[in-house]
């Protein structure tokens, strides 16, 4: 029933007595005028997730302080090439989604779906890359119980991987939407929400990568 924020549906006209004076009824505030990608509620989730990852980053640096030597040694066992490759993959996935969204806006839906499929391909390669990397670590006898560095490494990159997989599902839904012959009324908001989430996956990795592979 509710679409994006600026078309908030009120099923019945409300009597004046009931209308509590809220911000919505006043003149548009300069703080809230403008377009919010996806829908307003989505940002509760996006910003909430960013906040929690912020906590994770802090945990990482504090724990690193308690075991500088351990973290340095741990970092040197990671293959920076894999990390760099994954960063470039996600950045590329992001730009493909940006271009895809542009194609949607210009109503070139076939091209849009191809670009989004391209982004899914970068996501798949990221997951394969991660699987190989984890496999190597396990093969070397390194696991989450080895020490604090590997605990955080597997936990945080694992939680990020879950985000990536959710993002892949979102991209899949987006591809289907762009292939529909007639766009539904909520398609634009859904596409923007999916794109925003995919960029979040990129954004979080942009911080995880240097923490584990570079500054540890």
């Amino acid at each position: 029933m509710l679409g994006t924020d600026d078309e908030e549906v009120q099923p019945l006209p409300r009597p004046a007595v009931a209308a509590a004076p809220t911000a919505k009824d006043g003149p548009p505030s300069r703080w809230t005028s403008g377009h919010v990608p996806g829908e307003v509620g989505l940002w509760i989730f996006i910003l909430g997730d960013m906040l929690v990852f912020g906590l994770f980053f802090g945990i990482f640096i504090v724990q690193r302080g308690d075991g500088l030597e351990e973290f340095r040694a741990g970092r040197e066992t990671l293959s920076t090439e894999f990390g760099v490759a994954n960063t470039v993959l996600l950045l590329t996935g992001s730009i493909l989604v940006v271009l895809g969204m542009r194609a949607v806006r210009e109503n070139r839906r076939r091209l849009a779906s191809q670009l989004l499929l391209g982004a899914m391909a970068t996501g798949t390669m990221f997951a394969i890359d991660k699987a190989i990397e984890w496999g190597e670590k396990f093969g070397d006898g390194l696991n989450p119980g080895t020490n604090d560095f590997y605990t955080l490494y597997f936990a945080f990159t694992g939680i990020h991987l879950v985000h990536l997989l959710i993002g892949m599902v979102a991209l899949g839904v987006m591809v289907r939407l762009t292939r529909r012959p007639t766009p539904g009324e909520h398609d634009q908001a859904l596409l923007e929400s999916g794109a925003t989430f995919w960029h979040l996956v990129d954004l979080l990795w942009l911080v995880l990568f240097p923490l584990f592979y570079l500054v540890a």
């Binding site: 549906v9 509620g41 940002w43 909430g48 997730d49």
Partner: peptide
């Protein structure tokens, strides 16, 4: 639409 949509996203979070 019983609950506002932000509440839905908050629950996923």
């Amino acid at each position: 639409q019983v609950y506002p949509r932000w509440f839905g996203f908050l629950n996923i979070w």
